[in-house]
């Protein structure tokens, strides 16, 4: 098994953290994993993305041109990564901020109104974990419980009061994927 996952959005949307959470879950469940961010003269509101590779064997290249899955949290990310996903792969779209639909018929697409759901729950910044849960549910790369455990183990202390809410958000994201992801 090897999954190559790109998580992309604006700086501030938690793309890097969502990737780290996935990396922790993968590590704690005994997989090989690499997490690598895009970096440079970046800023809040600028582009932010990371690549996470989860594998059963030692990971060579930590970057890929054609990922097996992607989460796109904004329009520029949709435009950049939707065409690159491998046939048979998975795309999670934050449909609250990305109005367009994918024209691919060879990938699985889950439209998650993640920012709206997160706002209803009380914090728009949870859109990242909603999409991550949908991706995890759709791909089976790790289990939702493993991601929740990773969140519990690695959420920074200053955000601990949001733990319960984050788990609730994840359940909603996973449910969307289970239901077919038409949102």
């Amino acid at each position: 098994m090897q999954e190559e996952i790109i998580i992309s959005g604006f700086g501030g949307q938690g793309t890097l953290f969502a990737g780290q959470l996935l990396a922790y879950a993968a590590m704690d469940s005994g997989h090989h994993v690499t997490w690598i961010p895009s970096y440079g003269p970046e800023m809040r509101g600028g582009k932010a993305r990371c690549t996470v590779i989860v594998s059963d064997e030692e990971i060579g290249a930590p970057l890929v041109r054609r990922p097996s899955a992607a989460i796109v949290l904004n329009i520029p990310s949709m435009e950049a990564f939707e065409p690159t996903i491998k046939p048979g792969g998975t795309l999670v779209v934050n449909s609250s901020l990305v109005p367009q639909r994918s024209e691919r018929d060879d990938i699985r697409v889950i439209y998650a109104p993640a920012t709206d759901i997160a706002e209803e729950l009380g914090n728009a910044r949870m859109a990242n974990v909603i999409c991550l849960a949908a991706l995890v549910e759709a791909t089976g790369v790790v289990t939702l419980d493993e991601v929740k455990q990773a969140l519990e183990d690695h959420l920074p202390a200053r955000h601990r009061k949001l733990l319960g809410l984050n788990k609730e958000a994840m359940d909603k994201g996973a449910a969307l994927a289970k239901a077919g992801g038409g949102g």
Partner: peptide, 10 residues
Amino acid sequence: DGAIGQMMEP
């Protein structure tokens, strides 16, 4: 290189 510096691995 910068990739090794910035990446995370177990």
